[in-house]
């Protein structure tokens, strides 16, 4: 048995491979379900029902997908240029902190300008945070995997300090949380009395914009060249450091927007449990989407379905919702197999 490279990928295979990967992941995740002596069909049926089975379920899933699209895009943009931004979690929190700082009434602006203000400030905060590891990498050769990862903890402690201190809500019954975002700065709900908010529209638009930028623009051309071959890009005369800085800023801004969406669209105030690891899940989303910005939207929806559905299943039959992590992680591995299958042909002898 050996692998031979394919020169062309049939369209049917390009579609069947990811679908097969997810099916295989569900099959593998069924093993612990059988072990736990529950019906596999019932468990998966409940996941499906919990994520997509009602209007409310669907809005919950969409609400969960919103930050995942942003952080998935943040990872996809950076990874495409081989800038390993593992710090979307920190950028998300700093974006949320910045949004809370200007969105809780501290800055007085005309009503129509409040939402753009929190968006811009949050994106800027994420971008500037990502600038630090990018510059360290370019100037001193410091590995950005380490710096972006460790900055996550720095930011979390900083946020903790702020919401325990200067930004603490005096009406918060002593809980460590910021003051609530004022109505003018709150992202409108898409469906009344649910949690799905306008951030979803922004996230999808961002996905389309990132795709257009990557595939059609001069910036994308430069970023893809620098990512695929820094030596050839430099030889051809591309400003490699400038391209890296630009990619870092865009990546950080996207992660920052994830934070703005959560604080100004969903939660309404800043706490330390704003994100259950959306920054890290974004990496999984980007890898599942094979760094394609449009596929990031689909992959984020899939991950959201699994997480929201697993919570529902867990409440119904008492299987730990940790199964969601298992399904997502397994599908990442099977997706690697699928990408191998699209790039190579398997031959038996």
């Amino acid at each position: 048995m050996r692998l031979e490279p394919r020169t062309q990928v049939p369209l049917a295979l390009a579609i069947a491979a990811p679908a097969g990967a997810i099916a295989l992941a569900l099959l593998l995740a069924a093993i612990p379900l059988i072990w736990a002596e529950v019906s596999v069909f019932e468990a998966y049926g409940l996941i499906f029902k919990g994520a997509l089975g009602s209007r409310f379920a669907i809005t919950e899933t969409l609400a969960r997908a919103t930050p995942l699209i942003f952080t998935g895009l943040a990872a996809a943009v950076a990874f495409r240029a081989k800038l390993w931004n593992i710090g979307a979690e920190g950028q998300l929190y700093l974006g949320a902190l910045a949004a809370a700082a200007v969105g809780t009434g501290a800055v007085a602006m005309p009503t129509f300008a409040m939402i753009p203000l929190v968006l811009v400030v949050g994106a800027l905060a994420g971008a500037l945070l990502m600038l630090i590891p990018t510059l360290l990498k370019l100037r001193l050769g410091v590995d950005e995997v380490v710096t972006t990862l460790l900055l996550n903890f720095v930011v979390l402690l900083f946020v903790s300090m702020m919401i325990e201190g200067p930004m603490k809500d005096p009406m918060g019954m002593g809980w460590p949380q910021s003051e609530p975002i004022v109505d003018e700065a709150t992202l409108p709900k898409l469906v009344a009395r649910t949690r799905v908010h306008a951030g979803l529209i922004l996230a999808i638009l961002a996905g389309i914009a990132v795709w257009v930028m990557t595939q059609r623009s001069v910036w994308g051309f430069e970023a893809r060249a620098v990512g695929a071959s820094p030596a050839a890009a430099r030889f051809a005369g591309m400003p490699v450091p400038r391209v890296m800085i630009r990619v870092g800023l865009i990546s950080g801004a996207l992660a920052g927007l994830a934070g703005v969406g959560e604080v100004a669209g969903l939660k309404g105030y800043l706490t330390l449990d704003l994100s259950p690891g959306f920054g890290y899940s974004g990496i999984v989303v980007a890898m599942l989407a094979q760094l394609n910005a449009l596929a990031v939207i689909v992959a984020a929806m899939f991950v959201a379905v699994v997480f929201v559905g697993a919570d529902f299943m867990s409440r119904a039959i008492g299987v730990s919702n940790y199964l969601a992590n298992l399904v997502v992680a397994t599908s990442l591995l099977t997706m690697l197999l699928a990408s191998l299958a699209t790039r190579y042909r398997l031959r038996w002898h």
Partner: peptide, 12 residues
């Protein structure tokens, strides 16, 4: 290594 980006198209 220096002349072309292997993962990009001929026109690129």
């Amino acid at each position: 290594h220096d002349g072309v980006v292997g993962d990009m198209n001929v026109w690129e």
